[in-house]
Design a protein around this nucleic acid. Structure first.
Lengths: 151, 151
DNA sequence: TTGATATCATTTGCATACGAATGAATTTGG
DNA sequence: CCAAATTCATTCGTATGCAAATGATATCAA
């Protein structure tokens, strides 16, 4: 009887005690991202991951508008503007107005920007490898597949 | 012969063309994190994930120093200070000086902070579920195991 | 004990990141 | 054709996130 009551109390108890921050996907995702950024910085000190992403995508697709570039690298308009401004200040991209659609700002790699991204791509491969280093090759493949489903 | 030469050229060619930003772990990790933060904001609009993490950890361990709390929730000293300052401004935590070690700043939940975190924990569970929703239960378990190894 | 070290917190500077508001230019629908 | 809606870019405000420098306090070691 008293056992039954105890069970009932336990069942009704809001299991706040069971909430473990360290096991929540958001918390671990944030830490994994932090670790990656740290690895990135150790290999490529003078460019941030978003800056690298912008250069890599420009290298890939060529001239695009600032907003379109933002879409391609998953940055909103306000964020991409800051990134591009800083790349421009360093002479890695240049900006021209679109002749026909005067709203658009076209972004291009400069020769220096092209040289930089081509030089850095091998390092980026190493960064990817180091980030995935705690996993076996098979685990890494599984992880990438599942991560892609989440993103 | 010309076939052999061609093969040689291909083998030596730096495969920059093969670099796909969208397939790099860092890029997808950043996108997955963005998605999670967006889900979090849709469920808990008036608190950020770092603010929630601070409250949840305080609820878990009770009084701690600001730096210690930062360690527990993976934030450096400068970042945790900003988070705690904003929680204090909203009356969710209060700060007292450590009696013995005058360097330390002790952080505590206020009654309002305790009420808030206990009210939000069920929502946080829903956020975790929604974040993992693209995966089956088995996939989610695998993903969490591998993600933990990376973080 | 005291001088060197280490720890805790703060501050500054820089770089994402995003919501919201704004203005300019384009496209669409009636 | 023209008013309404949309798109592109910018700006502002707020919130992480981290490196580096600084000041105060505590601890360690000679």
């Amino acid at each position: 009887m008293s056992g039954g009551e105890l069970k009932l109390v336990e069942a009704e108890e809001p299991d706040d005690h069971d909430y473990r921050l360290q096991e929540q996907v958001g918390f671990i995702l944030r830490k994994a991202h932090q670790r990656h950024v740290s690895i990135f910085a150790s290999q490529i000190g003078d460019l941030t991951p978003p800056q690298f992403a912008a250069l890599a995508k420009l290298h890939d697709v060529g001239e695009t508008s600032q907003n379109q570039l933002g879409t391609l690298i998953a940055m909103d308009a306000a964020t991409v503007k800051g990134v591009i401004d800083r790349l421009k200040a360093r002479g890695l991209v240049d900006l021209t107005k679109h002749e026909v659609d005067k709203r658009r700002l076209l972004v291009n790699l400069t020769p220096e920007g092209r040289e930089a991204i081509e030089r850095l791509i091998p390092l980026a491969r190493a960064i990817t490898q180091e980030t995935l280093a705690p996993l076996t090759a098979k685990e890494a493949a599984t992880f990438m597949r599942l991560l892609a489903k989440l993103a």
